[in-house]
């Protein structure tokens, strides 16, 4: 669609036409702000907690558990040096033997969601799949934050308009 519009505009005489090929999907998935009716409604990316503890695969579980619990968390996200999500530690994984490496203890390849997903969809998904939390990432897999089911359900209940499809 955009290439055809760009070609048409050039035919109409515009000299400096650029095409942002990755489009609105890329923009919204990166967590950048938008304008419009939906821009102020809660979504996965706005509700996700950005202060979730992160750790590396080579870290020791006991150290990560102490750090996470010390910060009031019962979860941590495993990331690489670029903050790409590799795994997740929920309460069950954090309770494993402390001498394990994170790579051994983590739940690998968790389902992730993009920041623009409406909060009602997230609340329904997390409830329906009995998940306490899920990582929110950009299109290239980088961590935005951890969305807690309790937060998603609360925000969805406070936003009746969020029921409608937002994208």
């Amino acid at each position: 669609m955009a290439p055809r519009a760009a070609a048409r505009l050039e035919l109409l005489g515009f000299q400096q036409v650029h095409e942002y090929k990755p489009g609105k999907l890329d923009w919204m998935a990166s967590g950048r702000p938008t304008e419009g009716e939906n821009s102020t409604r809660p979504r996965a990316g706005t509700v996700a907690r950005k202060d979730v503890p992160v750790c590396a695969p080579a870290d020791r579980l006991a150290d990560v558990r102490d750090r996470a619990r010390g910060a009031g968390w019962d979860a941590a996200v495993v990331v690489d040096g670029e903050r790409v999500v590799l795994g997740l530690l929920r309460a069950a994984e954090l309770a494993k033997e402390g001498e394990l490496s994170i790579e051994e203890a983590m739940r690998p390849g968790p389902s992730t969601f993009r920041p623009y997903v409406p909060i009602k969809e997230m609340a329904d998904y997390l409830t329906g799949h009995k998940l306490e939390s899920s990582p929110v990432t950009t299109l290239d897999g980088k961590l935005v934050g951890l969305l807690l089911k309790a937060d998603a359900v609360r925000e969805a209940e406070g936003c009746p308009d969020c029921v409608r499809k937002m994208i």
Partner: peptide
């Protein structure tokens, strides 16, 4: 609606950045 009429909304001295939803 990209035509001569709608083109009047655009400033020909500015760069234009066209986009849609994704790469389609």
């Amino acid at each position: 609606q990209v035509n001569r009429e709608s083109a009047k909304l655009l400033d020909p001295t500015r760069d234009l950045i066209v986009y849609c939803w994704d790469m389609a």
